[in-house]
Amino acid sequence: MAEQGRETEFAEFAESRADWLRRVAYLLCSDWHRADDLVQETLTKLYVHWPRMRRVDNPDGYARTVLVNTFLAEQRSPWQRWRARQPERTGTESAAPPADPESALDLRRALAALPPRQRATLVLRYYHDLTVEQTADALGCSSGNVKSQTSRGLQTLRRLLGTRSITPAGRTL
């Protein structure tokens, strides 16, 4: 009976959250295909740890933490370090361009240039709107570390995006 519950509950949760997790994964890794792989691995881990998933107060937060840590763990593997040096795959992404392609592309490239931990910190803080403490909890580090990663990440983004056209409001990062 418990096994049956796991199957049904997991399928419902995974189907309803897969797209959201995929978009978070895309912010982290800047590649839709890698995002798919990250979410696939995250869902497999969630299935294995489903009893724990049932007990947490915030299942979405737990799933996001598993995703972020899967991403960071992947960055540490020799295979991933090799892969990161390869040219970006082309020709297989057939989606329509975003509404503001230049802006989105700039940010995507700038994010991709950040060290993985800085990238994860910025995504958690400014996309998910997590506090410093919540971000530290998700990344398994101290609040001070989150603050320094945030500061360095923002500094790097400003530098990378510095040549982008000034918006009508006169704002740049």
Partner: peptide
């Protein structure tokens, strides 16, 4: 930055390659 991250996450994506049934099977 928050707005642009949201825009980037919401940008049109290729068809998903995520396979929930396969995740369960591998699990």
């Amino acid at each position: 930055l928050t707005r642009e991250l949201s825009d980037l996450a919401a940008s049109p994506a290729p068809v998903s390659g995520v396979d929930v049934a396969m995740a369960a099977r591998n699990g």
